[in-house]
Structures are given as C-alpha cells and as structure tokens.
C-alpha cells in the first residue's frame, strides 16, 4: 500500500469522526464556532463603555436613553478552529517490516478529515531539515503531497533547526513514536505554548513494544544506522520492557505538567486503538 492509498484509507476512517473542540480556549479566524473573545455573532455576551472607534451599530441606544452613557453591546466572536498536525517523519517512523509508516499516513488523514468534519482548518507539519508544511495540506488528505519519511533529523533536532509556526489557540496533535533522547519536558513545553489543546499520539510498532526473541541479535538504529550486538535473554528482555515503561512514564509525567493528552496507539491495530482517542476526547463521532 503506497502513501496515497494509506491517506485515502485514513480519510475514509476519519469520515466517522469529528475533532473534539475545547470550547473555552478556542481562537481562530472568523468562522462558525463561537470564540472566547467578543465578535460579530448574534450571541450577546456583555456590555462595556463606548470607546472611540467602536462600531456605532453596536451602541445600545436604549441604555443611552436611560443612563445618558454610551454603552456598546458585545457579541460572541465566531471563529474557525485550527488544527496543526505535527508529524514525526523521521526514519524511525518508517521502521522496516512494520506498519508504522502506513499507520502514520492513516492517522494523519484521519485527524485531518475529522478536523474538516468539525469545520476546522488544518495544517500538516513534517520533520526534515526543520519543520515544513506538506504540500496541499489544507486540502483533503487524498490531495496532499507526499509525506517524505526517513528524514535523518530527529523530532527534537528538527524542532531546534526550524520549529513549526503553530497557530495560537489552535489544536495541536503530535504523532510520533516519542523515542527522543533526553528530557521531553522542554520540547513539550514549546509545543503546548499558546495551544488550545495538545494531544500526543505515540505510535508504536509491535517490534517497539516487544524486544527480539532470545539469541544473538545485531540491533540497528533506523535513524542513525548505529549497530549494537547483543545476546538477548530473558533478563535483557525484561530490562527493555522496563525501559520502555519508564520512557512512557516520563512522557506521561511531562504531558500532565503541560496539560497535554498522551495516547499510545499500536500501528498494527490502528482501528482498534481509535477508541482511546475518543476516551481522551480528541475525537468524537461525527
């Protein structure tokens, strides 16, 4: 299945969902959703004193007659929410002999379609030599340009070179395996800064969850090409599982500190994992 077919499949999966919108903190261009600020909708929000430059059409003349004070009626702003899809397209997401890349495409298309169902605009960012937009990313996923996987830069490095220009008060969904060295908190703080909601989707291949079977194994890092020869036995297998658990705990801790949601999905069972996205109120039925 090539990337296009994966995107189409993800798009079809996304038709059943809509992106869940956090009402309290939404901001964006004029649109169909009520924003947190005053705007031009028909929903009355508040009064305030007239200030020069205010639209004269919003002066409440009845109140002026009663109080002899120029008072302006404020209405709720109508905004269109925005989704920034930040995709980790480093080489680890294209792990050989795993459905990781296919799942990444499907998930990206799913979220973009769910955003469209929720009348959200969206942008898709991928890692490379810094973060870049995907061609035609505002279009439906089937019209996107290729998500070039296999970049030599890790998520952190790409973020350091050229961070994505994420829209303020927008919804941000990061899809990555989160195998970043070092403390995840600084990077996560940057991702959550000024965001209405951040969801971290940790996409793992089955081989990321379970270490290789016992025996002599030469491990090769998919991003750096570095190798490590090991004799794997039950002890080392157990150590691997504990290390993965510690990594997930550190991310979970960082997510709690920054108000983000962390969801782990397994690439070979994507369909079955989507319920966890509903449970964390990232998606909702369309």
């Amino acid at each position: 299945m090539n990337y296009r077919q994966s995107l189409i499949a993800g798009e079809q999966m996304g038709l059943r969902y809509a992106l869940a919108l956090p009402q309290a903190t939404l901001a964006g261009q004029r649109g169909e959703h009520l924003g947190r600020r005053a705007g031009s909708s028909v929903d009355f929000q508040d009064y305030r004193d007239y200030q020069p430059g205010d639209d004269l059409r919003h002066i409440d003349w009845n109140a002026y007659a009663r109080t002899d004070q120029l008072t302006v009626k404020l209405f709720r702003e109508e905004v269109q929410p925005h989704l920034d899809l930040v995709l980790d397209t480093s080489a680890s997401m294209a792990l050989a002999d795993s459905p990781k890349a296919q799942a990444l495409h499907q998930l990206a298309a799913l979220f973009a379609t769910a955003a469209a169902n929720a009348r959200c605009s969206h942008a898709v960012w991928v890692t490379g030599e810094g973060f870049q937009r995907v061609a035609n990313d505002t279009q439906p996923p089937s019209a996107w340009g290729e998500l070039s996987l296999g970049g030599a830069r890790s998520f952190e490095e790409a973020h350091g070179l050229l961070p994505p220009r994420l829209r303020r008060q927008g919804i941000r969904i990061v899809i990555s395996d989160l195998f970043w060295p070092g403390d995840p908190l600084p990077t996560l703080r940057k991702l959550t800064e000024g965001a209405a909601a951040v969801t971290l989707v940790q996409l793992l291949a089955p081989s990321d969850l379970e270490p290789p079977k016992p025996g002599n194994v030469q491990l090769e890092d998919s991003e750096t090409g570095e190798t490590l020869s090991l004799y794997i036995d039950t002890t080392i297998q157990e150590q691997y599982r504990k290390t993965l658990q510690r990594l997930q705990q550190s991310w979970d801790h960082a997510a709690q500190q920054t108000g983000a949601e962390l969801v782990t999905l397994i690439a070979d069972n994507l369909q079955g994992s989507l319920r966890s996205l509903e449970e964390c109120r990232t998606l909702e039925p369309a």
Partner: peptide, 20 residues
C-alpha cells in the same frame, strides 16, 4: 546457524542505551 547474529532494525537504540 542457530546462534549467529540476526540483524534487527529498531526504531531507536534509545531503549537499548543501558546495554550499550
């Protein structure tokens, strides 16, 4: 034949860092 090194690509050696 049974115990020669199998090549196995992993997402990252991060989780094997302890052994390395």
């Amino acid at each position: 034949l049974r115990h020669r090194f199998r090549r196995h690509q992993v997402s990252s050696l991060l989780l094997w860092q302890l052994h390395r």
